[in-house]
């Protein structure tokens, strides 16, 4: 870049250095994930030898049939499902309130809701842990859900609020003018309008909860969610092939819904672009 003395035209091309740097960053982000897929098929049971001595498919059925893994997976799915439902309710209510009304402290709401995500994970974790301790609540499924719901609310809130701001209020007014009551208007006008935002928010909340490990460590007691199970396997590797396959399955389970969520929000912003 330094050698170019002439002023740059608007359609300037990227320098080779910049392209290489970008490519290197992209590879840095993605190669590790590819390696997880490769290692799911390695025949090496006791080490992480590269290149793998040979490849096999036999670990996949074994991993899926592993009872400890299944139990952890089921717990994670149940926690994530319930946390998502709570995030949907709380996030949508909050978004509706912020969108429709002016009230004291309105600006603080967004900040407030993002705090559990923005503060270091151990803060939320140890905070909830000390509350559990102080009130002497036994660890349970519910203590995990409470923590997860708390930091998942913001994903739904952000998505729904963004959608509210994009959809025009005239439809709601028209519906009311034509004689529909608030509930009918909500059911027939508002809900269809925000449905994809709800779905996108729900997917993000679900995957956030499904993956969470730091807060969960403080709220789970002896129970193992899938990320905690994987963490345990990393601390003391007992069954490497099973862990490798599980890691691959988790990538697949989380990546596909995220792609879907991206599409949902991207498409709605496209149509928005056409309208304006």
């Amino acid at each position: 870049m330094l050698s170019k003395k002439k002023s740059q035209p608007p359609g300037e091309r990227a320098s080779w250095g910049l392209k290489l740097g970008s490519l290197a960053a992209l590879l840095f982000l993605h190669v590790p994930i590819w390696l997880i897929f490769l290692y799911s098929f390695t025949t090496d049971e006791s080490a992480y030898t590269f290149p793998p001595p040979s490849l096999t498919l036999k670990w996949i059925p074994q991993a899926i049939a592993n009872p400890a893994m299944q139990e952890a997976l089921m717990l994670s799915l149940r926690v994530a499902a319930l946390a998502t439902v709570m995030a949907l309710i709380l996030g949508t209510l909050g978004a509706a309130a912020v969108y429709r009304y002016d009230f004291f402290g309105k600006e603080a709401i967004s900040f407030f809701l993002i705090l559990p995500l923005a503060l270091p994970g151990i803060v939320t974790g140890i905070a909830i842990r000390s509350a559990i301790n102080l009130m002497q609540i036994p660890f349970s499924f519910w203590t995990i859900v409470i923590g997860h719901a708390t930091f998942s609310v913001v994903t739904v809130y952000n998505n729904v609020l963004a959608r509210f701001r994009r959809t025009s209020g005239t439809m709601v007014e028209a519906s009311m003018d034509l004689g529909a009551n608030s509930f009918q208007t909500f059911w027939h006008i508002v809900l269809p309008n925000i449905s994809t935002a709800l779905l996108a928010g729900a997917i993000l909340a679900f995957s956030l909860s499904f993956d969470e490990v730091i807060v969960t460590t403080f709220t789970a007691g002896q129970q193992q969610t899938l990320p905690i199970w994987i963490f345990g396997q990393m601390l003391k590797p007992r069954n490497r092939p099973i862990t490798n396959v599980t890691a691959m399955l988790v990538v697949l389970i989380t990546a596909l819904p995220i792609l879907l969520a991206q599409r949902l929000t991207a498409r709605s912003s496209d149509t928005e672009g056409e309208k304006s």
Binding site: L29, P32, L35, A47, T49, F50, T243, I258
Partner: peptide, 28 residues
């Protein structure tokens, strides 16, 4: 944009795990 956001949203523990494979003494 997708290439950046997918790692952002994909599992944190699993991404950490991948580096166990990479940095191991016998690893890549």
């Amino acid at each position: 944009y997708l290439a950046v956001t997918i790692p952002l949203w994909s599992s944190y523990v699993v991404r950490v795990y991948s580096w166990k494979l990479i940095l191991a003494q016998e690893g890549i």
